[in-house]
């Protein structure tokens, strides 16, 4: 019973968070309210994160805490110290880190508990998460390189080789997904 209530509260919190995201984005669209909108959206994120932590099946918080501490330190330090003029690069980097995070989530979901069958729908979702996450990551890295003017011609080639390699991986992935 208690579990059901907790679940219900968590799910309702997600709806509240989603509403705050929408209002936040709306307010970000006009100069007078933009800062408040960002604040609202971050409050929504806080609610969603707390709700996410109560999810059923989480038995070990040690690694979550470690990951969050590392991420907070890196993210906060990077956001504080970066020069105002190199903001676009920073946003590209953050976007890339979000992309690789969803790639890793998709990848991690593949390791379902033994005996549990991954449904076709879940498998397709996982493949999409890995595909889009990987694309976001490589795309953002190239954007970062171009913005910070560190991509020379040979490094560009290297990145393209990387993309090609990823495409091959993707084809292999879809192939194995279909076979699966």
């Amino acid at each position: 019973m208690e579990n059901i209530n907790l679940n219900l509260i968590a799910n309702l919190s997600y709806i509240v968070a989603a509403a705050l995201f929408i209002f936040g984005l709306k307010m970000l669209g006009s100069p007078a309210t933009a800062r408040k909108g960002n604040m609202l959206s971050s409050i929504g994120m806080l609610i969603a994160v707390v709700a996410g932590l109560t999810a059923e099946g989480i038995v070990d918080f040690k690694y979550i805490a470690a990951g969050m501490i590392i991420g907070t330190i890196i993210g906060a330090a990077a956001a504080r110290m970066i020069a105002m003029t190199s903001m676009p690069e920073m946003v590209a980097l953050f976007n890339g880190s979000g992309g690789i995070a969803s790639l890793l989530v998709g990848w991690g979901t593949l390791y379902a508990p033994a005996g549990e069958v991954v449904s076709t729908f879940t498998a397709v979702t996982i493949i999409l998460a890995i595909l889009i996450g990987g694309m976001t990551f490589t795309g953002s890295m190239i954007a970062y390189g171009k913005l910070s003017e560190t991509i020379g011609s040979w490094r560009g080639c290297l990145l393209w080789a990387n993309v090609l390699f990823n495409s091959l991986l993707l084809i292999a992935l879809i192939g194995s997904g279909v076979m699966f």
């Binding site: 690694y63 590392i70 991420g71 907070t72 993210g75 953050f94 880190s97 979000g98 995070a101």
Partner: peptide, 8 residues
Amino acid sequence: AVAFATIN
């Protein structure tokens, strides 16, 4: 993934 998403 937690670390990267938190950075984001």
